[in-house]
Write a protein that binds this DNA or RNA. Structure first.
Length: 212
DNA sequence: ATCCCGAGGG
DNA sequence: CCCTCTGGAT
């Protein structure tokens, strides 16, 4: 596997590559971020960002989303795929937030997971980006793929196991930004199908490059 | 044919 | 663990 110095070197190199370390789904209201992440399931952030402005303009409050007709919500989010389930979840979660949480997005994993359409990935992203919880690992498709290639994990694709394996080795105050940088690196360099290894400065620490 | 910052159900 | 849900890009 990887020793502590290698991990810190990777963390620092990623900081140099992507100083921002931010989420590309940046919306002012926590519930907007929550639903944007739901829409991002098996869909690019770029496409999510194309549909959310019109959606949140048509339904400008949580209350309006709670009362929305899922069929109308579908028309706004159709191009993101899985539109029936996503529309259903957004309306149902809005109702639950209004009725049971006074319109506030909860700040614990347990409560977030009770919301329809909110799984570990979405919950972790909210805990990290909205509530700045230390030690958060967002194990999405990019994070799983790249940490697996680097050798920071044993190669499992189970998100919960990736979380378990990364949390102990990443500095708690940096784990969330690290995951955002995984996404940025996954889009720009370490793509799923054709990783651009010659242009990747993480080569010195990468098992995938070294062993191929 | 495979992938995109997944979630829910069996 | 498996499967399904769905559109768009490459």
């Amino acid at each position: 596997m990887k020793n502590h110095e290698d991990v810190l070197a990777i963390v620092e190199e990623l900081k140099k590559l992507y100083p921002e370390g931010l989420c590309s789904l940046q919306y002012p209201k926590p519930y907007e971020l929550l639903f944007s992440v739901r829409l991002a399931a098996q869909c690019t952030d770029e496409r999510v960002n194309m549909v959310t402005p019109a959606l949140f303009a048509r339904f400008p409050t949580l209350e309006s989303l709670a009362q929305a007709d899922p069929a109308e919500v579908e028309t706004y989010i159709h191009s993101t795929g899985f539109f029936r389930a996503k529309a259903r979840d957004i309306v149902a979660a809005s109702r639950m937030l209004v009725e049971q949480y006074s319109g506030r997005v909860p700040d614990t994993m347990e409560e977030l997971l009770k919301l329809p359409g909110v799984g570990r990935k979405t919950a972790n992203l909210i805990l990290g980006d909205v509530y700045h919880t230390p030690g958060v690992v967002v194990a999405d498709t990019h994070c799983i793929r790249i940490t697996g290639r680097l050798g920071l994990t044993d190669g499992t694709k189970d998100p919960a196991k990736v979380e378990e394996q990364l949390r102990p080795i990443l500095p708690p105050e940096e784990s969330n930004d690290f995951c955002h940088r995984m996404v940025l690196h996954g889009r720009a360099v370490c793509m799923a199908r054709k990783p651009d290894c010659p242009n990747c400065t993480l080569r010195p620490w990468c098992d995938f490059y070294t062993k191929s």
